[in-house]
Simulated scan of single mutants.
Amino acid sequence: MPFVNIKVPQAALSTAQKAEIIHRMTDLLVEYLSEAARPHTMVLIEEVPDGGYGRADEVFVIPEAYRATS
């Protein structure tokens, strides 16, 4: 069973954007593995709360301008 785990900042993606990522990632894996993989493909999008991750020793908080509107 193909499994994809994507972590994004909380509120960075809309529900529609998440659905599109799930569909496109599934299609990508089917392209490589065959159509038989489609019913067994799992795509998990995890939202990480602000302040729950960092880079280069800095805690990250998503700017308001980058938050999804729905």
Rank of each mutant, 00 (worst) to 15 (best):
V61D: 09
I22R: 03
V43I: 14
G51N: 11
S34A: 12
T15Q: 15
S14C: 11
E20N: 11
V30F: 04
V43E: 05
T26F: 00
I6N: 00
R55H: 09
K7W: 00
E46I: 04
Y53K: 03
A56N: 14
V59D: 06
D27I: 00
A16Q: 12
H23V: 11
A37M: 09
T15Y: 10
K7H: 08
R24K: 15
G54M: 08
L29W: 07
A16S: 10
D57Y: 13
V8E: 05
P63V: 04
R55Y: 12
D27K: 10
L13V: 07
T41N: 02
A11Q: 15
I62Q: 11
T41R: 02
K18G: 02
K7N: 08
T15A: 15
L44Y: 07
A19W: 02
I22G: 03
A37K: 05
T26G: 05
E20R: 12
G54R: 04
Y32F: 07
R38G: 06
A56T: 12
V4A: 02
E35M: 09
E64K: 12
L44V: 13
V8D: 07
P2V: 01
P2T: 02
I21W: 07
D57K: 13
L28Q: 03
E58Y: 13
A56W: 09
L28V: 01
T15I: 15
V48W: 00
E47D: 02
R38F: 03
P39N: 03
I62W: 03
Y66R: 14
I45S: 01
R67E: 12
L29E: 05
L33C: 12
I22T: 06
H40T: 11
I6Y: 00
S34V: 02
Y32S: 09
A65H: 13
A37Y: 01
R24W: 07
A65F: 13
V59H: 06
T15P: 08
K18H: 09
E35D: 14
Q17V: 08
A36D: 14
M42V: 11
R67K: 15
T15M: 13
A16D: 13
T26Y: 00
V48S: 01
F3L: 12
F60T: 07
E31C: 05
M1C: 08
E58I: 12
G54F: 08
M42I: 11
L44N: 11
E20K: 11
I21A: 04
T69I: 12
E46R: 06
A68D: 10
Q17L: 08
A19P: 01
G51C: 10
F3C: 08
A65G: 14
Y53R: 05
N5E: 07
P2D: 04
E35K: 14
P39Y: 04
G52N: 13
H40D: 07
V43S: 04
Q10S: 14
I6D: 00
V43F: 06
T41Y: 05
Y66P: 00
M1H: 11
G54S: 08
Y32W: 03
K18L: 03
I62T: 13
H23S: 14
R38C: 05
E31R: 03
N5Y: 05
E31L: 06
T26D: 10
A68C: 15
P63G: 07
V43K: 06
F3A: 10
A56R: 13
